[in-house]
Computed example of a mutant assay.
Amino acid sequence: MHESHIRHARPADADALGELDRETWSPVHAVLPRPVPPYAPFFDANHRPEDFLVAEEVGSRAVLGYIRLVPPTPLASNQHVRQIQGLAVADRARGHGIGRSLLRAACGEARRQGAVRITLRVLSHNTPARALYEAEGFTVEGVLPGEFRIEGRYVDDVIMGRALGA
C-alpha cells in the first residue's frame, strides 16, 4: 500500500507531473488527443503550481497523483466557487484511496480560499470517477449530451457539484 501525504505543488514537480499526465492518459477521461513529443510544459500561465495539490509517497517522495483546483471564471460574481479541472492518480497507486484523499484535500483547500461550492466536469463513461465523486457528496447538476466525440462515439459531459460545509 502507498502511504501518501498531500501538499501544494512546486515548480520542481513539473517533470514528474507531466510524466504522470502522460502515463494516465486515457480516452475514458481525456478530451484532448494522446500527448506526443515534444511535450508542452506542465506548468504555464494558466496552469500554475499553486493551482495543484500533489499526493506524494511517504518515504520515496514520488508523486502519486494530483488535483487541480481553480476559480471557474475570473468573474467576481462567482469567486465563491472553485472548480476541479484535473485529477490523476498513478496506475501503481490506484485503489489505495489517493484519489479520495486528493478530492477531500481539494474541498478543504477550496474552503480555506473562501469557497462555499465546488464543481467539476466528468465524462459520462468515466464510471470510476463518477462513483468516487458521488461517494464524496457530489451530485449531477447538469448534462451536456454528446458534448464530445471520442474515438468515434459521442460522450456526454456531466457537470457535478456540491456545497462546502464548514
Rank of each mutant, 00 (worst) to 15 (best):
L64V: 06
P74N: 09
R7Y: 02
S60E: 05
I98L: 01
R100F: 00
M160R: 03
V89Y: 01
R121L: 04
T119G: 02
L64D: 05
A55R: 01
E3R: 13
L20Y: 09
F138D: 01
R130S: 00
P11G: 03
V58I: 11
A131K: 08
R94S: 01
V31W: 06
A62R: 15
R92C: 03
S101E: 12
A166G: 14
A163V: 13
F43M: 09
I6K: 00
D21A: 15
A12L: 10
S101A: 15
Q79A: 14
G86Y: 06
A62N: 13
V89G: 03
L87H: 05
D157K: 06
R92V: 11
F43Y: 11
R112N: 12
A115Q: 07
G137M: 02
Q113A: 14
R112C: 05
E56V: 10
P72G: 09
P72Q: 08
V54E: 08
G114Q: 07
F52G: 12
A90T: 01
G152K: 10
A16M: 08
L123K: 05
G114M: 04
I84P: 06
A14Y: 12
G97T: 02
E109I: 03
N126E: 02
R111P: 02
Q83R: 15
A76C: 08
D156H: 10
A55N: 04
A105I: 04
F138T: 01
R7M: 05
R34C: 14
R100I: 00
L123A: 04
P49M: 10
L144P: 00
N78E: 11
R117N: 11
A88F: 00
A131H: 02
L64Y: 06
